[in-house]
């Protein structure tokens, strides 16, 4: 187990380093381009050369990368070109906003999809199962921007229940949060529910469930004690990996609802070629993704005695 943990952590660090190197090469190999982006297209060649000299851009790529990595490890990604402030000052509040959004999405999505998935998987082929499955396919087929349009049309344009934008400029507001959360849950719950259903349905056909039933155990015991424990191992991993998906989803939703979060920031940075901000955002995204994946792997191993005790 210890070896496994060390391995996973080492892999996490290696992934971060490889990704950062690729990112660095992608964005900063062309130093003149960097200077142009920082100083603007109307800067003179001398200005750019001076800036490059002063900021150490004439050093070899490897040296620059190591310096960048050392700074990044301390949380220093340089100054944002667009906001003219250190990247951290822009990034952290935005990240916090996205964390709030993500928390609510998960708080709604996990219980909803697990309950529906288990109910559907318990009786494979029943009417309930079929309706849940088809609902899942339909909601997963509507891209976030489309469901944002549909939900806005209903709740903003027609029912006038929620505001059309969610900038949260006057502090935290449930009414502003409702639509972004709904859009993200709608898109994702179907996937998780279908995974849970598949896992549960598979467990229900195993010989050990037959053994449990033929032992004369009450149906409740069969489900709660024998089936769920095995059926929820797979969805656990799936749910953890949804954090990764959420980082993609928030880009669209935050952009649509003008929510001041991490996704909107990344998009803005990319569209404006704000390279230091892009680097910071990408590193944060990868860190979150890799960390959840590591937790998922470790958790899976822990939940599964067949792997835990070998």
């Amino acid at each position: 187990m210890l070896v496994f943990l060390t391995k996973r952590l080492a892999f996490m660090v290696i992934t971060m380093i490889v990704v950062s190197a690729l990112l660095f090469v992608l964005l900063e190999i062309d130093v003149d381009g960097v200077a142009t982006k920082v100083l603007g297209p109307y800067s003179s060649a001398e200005q750019r050369e001076l800036w490059l000299e002063r900021n150490g851009y004439r050093d070899p790529l490897g040296e620059r990368y190591l310096r960048w990595l050392a700074n990044a490890a301390r949380g220093d990604f340089g100054d944002s070109i667009r906001f003219k402030t250190p990247v951290g000052e822009v990034l952290w509040p935005r990240l916090w906003n996205t964390a709030i959004l993500g928390f609510w999405v998960f708080a709604v999505m996990i219980p909803l999809s697990l309950v529906l998935g288990v109910l559907a998987g318990m009786r494979e082929g029943s009417l309930l199962d079929r309706s849940i499955s088809i609902t899942g396919i339909v909601t997963t087929s509507v891209p976030e921007f489309a469901s944002a349009v549909f939900l806005s049309a209903i709740f903003v344009f027609w029912l006038k229940l929620f505001p059309g934008t969610s900038s949260m400029s006057d502090g935290f507001s449930f009414r502003e949060l409702a639509l972004p959360v709904m859009v993200l849950v709608l898109y994702d719950f179907g996937y998780v529910a279908r995974m849970t259903r598949a896992s549960m349905a598979e467990v229900m056909t195993t010989p050990y469930i037959r053994t449990a039933i033929l032992k004369g155990l009450p149906y409740r015991t069969v489900i709660l004690k024998h089936a769920l424990r095995n059926a929820l191992i797979a969805p656990f991993t799936v749910i953890m990996l949804q954090v990764n998906w959420l980082l993609s989803g928030v880009i669209v939703v935050e952009f649509f609802f003008a929510y001041k979060g991490f996704g909107a920031l990344l998009l803005e940075a990319s569209l404006n070629q704000d390279i230091f901000l892009i680097e910071a955002c990408a590193m944060v995204a990868v860190f979150v993704a890799v960390a959840t994946q590591t937790i998922a792997d470790v958790g899976y191993t822990y939940l599964n005695p067949r792997i835990r005790f070998t």
Binding site: T15, V19, S270
Partner: peptide
């Protein structure tokens, strides 16, 4: 497999946005 793990650890849309914006 390691290479795939690394690429897959990137949130897809983040990857698309960076590649295409660049």
């Amino acid at each position: 497999s390691r290479l795939a793990d690394i690429i897959l650890s990137f949130p897809v849309l983040v990857l698309y946005v960076i590649i295409i914006a660049h």
